[in-house]
Amino acid sequence: MEVIDLAWWKLALAAVLLLLLALCSHLSRLGITRSLLIAGTRTAVQLFLIGLILEALFAAADLVWIVLMAFVMLLVAGREVMARQERRLSGGWAFGIGTGAMFLSSFTVTILTLTVVIGPQPWYSPQYAIPLLGMMLGNTMTGVALSLDRLTESVWRQRAVIENRLMMGQTWREAVGDIRRDAMRGGMIPSINAMAAAGIVSLPGMMTGQILAGSPPAVAVKYQILVMFTITVGTGFGALMAVSVGSRRLFDTRERLRLDRLV
């Protein structure tokens, strides 16, 4: 099947529709016109830029550049995880824990998928490596940010309960156990829900894109299943690691609750 390239004027048509929406929301004073226009512009600019970078990267197919690109993506995701937490660990811990957890889970799962499951030649072929890593990081980021945010917020709100449990002679692990479980669940539920609803409520974005671009649905479906499994695995391990290290950091060696380590 041929890939139908999108003509520029058709893209412009979609932009006009977006402007029309902006006009309507302005007239009905919804107060979101500005953010709508800014977000629309950002989408266009950011995606064009990444398109240029990917074209260059695909042409070069050099491992060094791909690794560099991967680390830039990781650092941006780490910053995003930190920014999404209302209360976060101070002194670089919020960034370090989020980035470390994403690095270990996303990179491991992506490399495993590339080398063992998909097996392109060479294994780091950018057409496969970059989109796969991007999807892994994007989802792991959401999971890690959600679970860390839930952890720090719950510990903050339930500090009296945690301390009372410590007074009763519980270990820090027992005293914060419910909160840890809850935080890990909070990070994993979006990917579990996405798996449960896949194909029934909506066609997943990647699969839709692949079909629109001309792939046979049967192939698109296989890739989609692969991606959803790997995303869930990456997100789950990422959230587990982040919550384990993060909750340990909230107590000191004498098992005291250290809320002064949150900002």
Binding site: A160, V161, N164, R165, L166, M167, M168, G169, Q170
Partner: peptide, 20 residues
């Protein structure tokens, strides 16, 4: 001794007890 073991032996009952 471990902090949790100390606290079990030297038990603090706070003015506002918590029930989780």
């Amino acid at each position: 001794i471990a902090a949790h073991e100390w606290r079990r032996r030297v038990m603090l009952v706070p003015s506002e007890s918590q029930w989780w």
